[in-house]
Nucleic acid binder design. Structure first.
Length: 269
DNA sequence: AGATATTCCTGGAGGC
DNA sequence: TGCCTCCAGGAATATC
């Protein structure tokens, strides 16, 4: 399941193939993912030159010299394949460069999305307008303090709120809370300032380590089978229900907001 | 304000 | 082996 590190790794891998290239051909192999593809997607992209790639929250951005930005979301099963030997049932969007390289957006469960947005209007694009700061670099304990003060929801729920932090998903919310030794059930407004400082450090740390691991695992950001963004992940608590924690406690699973939360009952307080 | 439910979708896991 | 059920996930939206 792609989270921010996988999106970042994907964007870096895509950039190596398509950045600076002219788009020679676009093939929409179905009409929609979660939403319909922009009907004029092929027309607006074909012939355009890719001027750069980026990421906002868990969205990947492909900028073109026509003032458009292709915005993609990987949902839970989406990934790009580089120079696939052949196209399969779940390769929904194909982009071919002027060099003849191919990248295909593959998404079996079709939770992903593809939109084309005027680059100048990206900050005002509905999905981006209310987003909080990026969790990699812009986050401070003071910001968390300001946002959490007076809030009675759990700190885990707050971390999942994209208006407070953009792009932090279930896995890395769990991992960051573990790293900062915070009980995910704790009322957000009651987390100590010291813990918030630790959290503001833990969040970019766990994400940064995952991105670094992805880059090294995939070597050059492309796996041997041409897939971008999926790599072996080693989590401290996520998916490790029943496993021992280093403190002598046991990793426990609970459900918060219909999402699994994994944490150590003993050392997260 | 905040919790909960629903929708989208299907591969994979587990049960029998 | 083969059916069946259920779960996973992010975001938008609705309802309490």
């Amino acid at each position: 399941m792609p989270e921010l590190p996988e999106v970042e790794t994907t964007v870096r891998g895509l950039a190596k193939v398509i950045d600076g290239r002219r788009i020679a051909r676009v093939e929409m192999r179905r009409e929609d993912l979660r939403r319909a593809f922009p009907p004029d997607l092929g027309q607006r992209l074909t012939g355009a030159r890719v001027t750069g790639l980026g990421r906002r929250a868990k969205y990947g951005l492909i900028h073109t010299d026509r003032g458009d930005t292709l915005v993609f979301h990987l949902g839970m099963s989406g990934h790009w394949r580089v120079d696939p030997a052949e196209l399969g049932q779940h390769d929904h969007l194909l982009i071919v460069t002027d060099e003849g390289r191919q990248v295909a957006l593959n998404d079996a469960r079709r939770f992903g999305s593809v939109d084309l947005v005027c680059s100048d209007e990206l900050p005002q694009w509905p999905a981006f307008r209310a987003l909080g700061p990026e969790p990699t670099g812009e986050l401070t304990g003071a910001w968390l303090k300001q946002k959490f003060t007076g809030r009675k929801a759990s700190v885990k729920a707050m971390l999942m709120d994209q208006r407070i932090i953009a792009g932090l998903g279930n896995i890395y919310a769990c991992e960051a809370l573990y790293r900062a030794r915070i009980d995910p059930r704790k009322v957000a407004g009651k987390v100590s300032r010291a813990k918030l400082e630790a959290l503001a450090e833990a969040i970019p740390a766990v994400l940064g380590e995952a991105i670094a691991a992805g880059g090294s695992t995939l070597r050059d950001f492309v796996s041997p089978d041409g897939e971008l963004g999926y790599f072996a992940k080693e989590f401290a608590v996520y998916g490790r229900e029943g496993h021992p924690c280093g403190c002598g406690g046991t990793v426990t699973r609970i459900v918060q907001g219909a999402r699994s939360t994994f944490f150590c009952l003993k050392c997260q307080t």
